[in-house]
Design a protein around this nucleic acid. Structure first.
Ligand code: FES
Ligand code: FES
Lengths: 144, 144
DNA sequence: TATAAATAGGATAAATATATCCGAAATAAA
DNA sequence: TTTATTTCGGATATATTTATCCTATTTATA
């Protein structure tokens, strides 16, 4: 469904969000440990998220990754996925035709569209705040 | 969403189904042309589908790939996807945790489950016959 | 039985995704 | 201003997916 990079990106963003509630910045090392991911690879993904302005980074001593806690409720899962995996999953054809076209549909178009749109809605309606609060309250987990 | 191999496998199966209605067997060459895929790679995927008994092959002169036309309505998209991509998309965790566990859910579990289950329903309820008939009647298309 | 036609399957190549490493640049504090 | 700390970014390595090629095996028919 999502690439490894995207999975790491989502989990990393949630962990950053949790710490930003408390005004704490976190490093790739802490993040990788907490979400059980390869550190250097995770760092690369964080860079991409910074470039796409999903999260913010501060270089140098006492730096790290953070996110404005007032924006947490406006940062949606869809932004993270789009930044890392692109928008093929939202708009692309399920059977890989060059483009998904109502007027030239692939065999699964009508049925696939429903699933794809529900996924889209889900990602667009889920904020980093929603996810971070569930982790904080122990309802969900970032690693096994 | 699906691997390239899986996309080719689905489209190939549909084309085979259409021809099997008319008692015709088809070759990887014809299939690849019709679904716009690399021929040798497509042949490998067909082998896998034969091993998983989704389609049938006949070697030698006048041979080719076919599927029992009386079974077309019982062959579901889910069988093809499972044969090629495995069942991770049905049962796996959306964020890559080792397993999807109600009692130890990842942050997106509750919301992801709905989408995943709808996809599963869709694949299990769609038969090769449904898809083949739409192609035959010109409602949908196998390539751009 | 010999021949031609077709799938099966192993070996290999190319492309992409995943992962690691290291030096450069930026920044806070001593 | 120097030092320690931390992200940035390029180069490289590994694994997986996608794709190609060639030979073996099977089969219908002449
Ligand atoms: S054309 Fe394939 S999903 Fe729309
Ligand atoms: S635990 Fe992640 S989807 Fe169920």
């Amino acid at each position: 469904m999502f690439s490894k990079a995207c999975e790491y990106g989502i989990k990393a963003s949630i962990f950053i969000a949790i710490n930003s509630y408390e005004g704490k910045r976190v490093s790739p090392k802490e993040i990788a440990k907490e979400i059980n991911s390869p550190q250097a690879f995770t760092a690369k993904i964080l860079q991409a998220l910074v470039r796409h302005k999903v999260i913010n980074s501060v270089k140098g001593a006492y730096g790290g990754f953070e996110v404005n806690k007032n924006e947490l409720k406006y940062i949606k899962l869809s932004q993270i996925v789009k930044a890392i995996d692109g928008d093929n999953i939202y708009n692309g054809c399920g059977l890989g035709l060059e483009k998904c076209d109502e007027n030239h549909p692939c065999p699964v178009h009508e049925k696939f569209k429903n699933v794809r749109d529900e996924l889209k809605q889900m990602l667009e309606n889920t904020s980093l705040e929603d996810l971070a609060l569930d982790i904080k309250s122990g309802v969900s987990f970032l690693k096994a």
